[in-house]
Every structure is written in structure tokens, then in C-alpha cells.
Write a protein that binds this DNA or RNA. Structure first.
Lengths: 152, 152
DNA sequence: GTACTTGCAAAGTATTTGCAACGTC
DNA sequence: GACGTTGCAAATACTTTGCAAGTAC
């Protein structure tokens, strides 16, 4: 079976881009840290371990390229930094996020909970939905059960 | 009946802050442009018309203060700028946004469509929701009906 | 007078751009 | 050899901070 990186390579080729070693290293870092929400700087530091000669600008350019191709989504959780999150293969909508205001942890919800809401938006507001971004702020399970009241 | 600005003044006082002329001018600009999604720079330019001597740093400080008090929400639509949006009085959740990918217009949905979704998140993921941010990307009614295919 | 607030300038971050050099077909 | 790509340095954009001066009670 074809690997994820192979399919990404084809997507790049389809758009007349090459999967250079720098780009490959960047994509690998994203795949290996799929659960995280890395900033460009984070990605840069991790890529450097594989390819020490890479420049920060290249990482930015690669991330921009991947965003354009909808391979990753650029998100912003309100701190001053953009973060990059791999989109599930073939997903037409971006997944949801849960941010804990106690511990700061960011969890993902891959199932799409907005089907009905999108129908309402379409019928009531005449707006054809193509994609969505949904983030919840609240208290995660482990902070609740540990009765954690230490403010981070 | 008490005006909105009066109530905001009380909120500030309740948190031991003053409604200085600069802060008042800033709040007025936000009230007068409630439909828009102004950046700090936008607010600064508009406030300057009322209070020419104000500094950009003061606008930033005021917006930060208002964000802290939950009078405004700081949002980011993916261009590099933070934007500031008045929260409805007494609303426990932030309102939703519809961004048209044709014309770029940003519309607001004040009714809360996420009640059921939040229940699912609470029961299925054990996450207690305190607030949410929901943005849709798609095609607005007027772009659809005008058959607008001019890419901006 | 004390404590909060302001304007300005400087500093700080994050991100983008210019450009010569490199690599690949 | 043309063209996409890269690394570095410089430039840009947005936001925050330091500080002396101003203001309100």
C-alpha cells in the first residue's frame, strides 16, 4: 500500500512542485507530530535535527505551500503564533479543537459534529458552507478529575 | 434607560479601571462599527478622528483591557492581524462568523447554534465547555445570486 | 501624594522578501 | 542552460514594553 508521504508527493507533483529533501523532512516532521500543534519555529527546530542546513524561510515557504494544497491547515489559537495542523486525508472539513483553560492542552475531535448546524446555516442564512473552524474552550476531563486548581 | 457605554463604564469601575477619554473614544468607535471587524490599526485611525493625540500603544492597551473584561473578543481570520469584535451584552458564548470566500465579507450569526453540539462534547469527551469559536467559510447569498465569478 | 494612565520611542516577535548560489532535468 | 528551490540576511509587519510626564482623587 502507498504511504502517506507518497500520496503527498503526488499531490505536489500534480501541482507542479517537487518533493525536495527539505520539503520531505518538513512533511515527515508534521507526520511524526500529528497530534501536536507546531508553530513554524517548532517545525524548524525539529526539521533541523534531520536536515541541519535548512533555513527558517524554507520552512515557512513549505508550510505555506502545504496550506495552499490543503494538506495542512494554518491555525491560530490566540497567542501570537500560527500553528500548522495536518488535515485528515480526504476530509472536506477541518477537525475541531478542545482547548483546556486549566492545563492548556489542545485535543482534537476528528468526527464532524457540524452536519446539522451547517444545514441550518445553509437554509436560514443562504450561505453555502465549504469549510469550518470550531474551537471550544473549557475544562478537560483530566483537569476536572484531578481537581486541578493550579492556574498555569 | 442606561446606555451601553454607561454599563461598560460600570464594568470598568467594577474592575478598578477608569473610563478615560481615550478609552471612551475607543469604546465608542467599537460601538459605532459594531458590524465590522476592525484591526487595532483600524481602531487607532478611527479613534484619532475623535481624539487626535491618542497613541497606538494606548489603543492596544485598551483593546487588551476590554478583551480581559470580555467586552470584546480578539479574533484572527488568518491574515496576520488581530481583530476586535464586541461581544453581545451578557452572552456567555462568542457569536459565529460566516466568511465569504468570493467577496471576503464577514457576517455574524448572533443566535447560538451549538447547544446540542456542546452537549455531545460534554458527554462524549468529558470536556466542560465554557466558550466557543466557530467560523464558516463558503459562499454568501449575494455572491451566489449575482452569479459572481470574479475572483477577488 | 499615590496610583493609574498616557504618548513616544525603542524593543521584541513573527513572518516575508531579495538575491545569489545550487540542483535537476 | 532554464527554472524551480534554497539559505542567508535584510526588510517588514504587528504588537509590546520602558519610562518620564500627565491626571484624578
Amino acid at each position: 500500500m502507498e504511504s502517506r508521504i507518497e500520496r503527498i508527493k503526488k499531490q505536489l507533483h500534480g501541482a507542479s512542485y517537487k518533493l525536495t529533501p527539505q520539503r520531505e523532512a518538513t512533511v515527515l516532521v508534521l507526520l511524526e507530530n500529528e497530534e501536536d500543534h507546531l508553530s513554524a519555529e517548532d517545525v524548524f527546530l525539529l526539521v533541523k535535527e534531520k536536515a541541519p542546513e535548512i533555513g527558517l524561510a524554507t520552512v515557512y515557504r513549505t508550510l505555506e505551500l502545504l496550506t495552499e494544497l490543503k494538506i495542512v491547515d494554518k491555525i491560530n489559537f490566540g497567542d501570537g503564533v500560527s500553528r500548522y495542523d495536518l488535515r485528515q486525508e480526504g476530509a472536506s472539513r477541518f477537525h475541531h479543537h478542545l482547548i483546556c483553560i486549566e492545563c492548556g492542552k489542545v485535543a482534537e475531535i476528528q468526527e464532524d459534529l457540524l452536519g446539522d448546524v451547517e444545514k441550518i446555516v445553509e437554509s436560514r442564512y443562504g450561505f453555502t458552507v465549504k469549510d469550518h473552524w470550531l474551537t471550544f474552550h473549557g475544562i478537560c476531563q483530566s483537569c476536572k478529575s484531578s481537581g486541578n486548581d493550579s492556574k498555569k
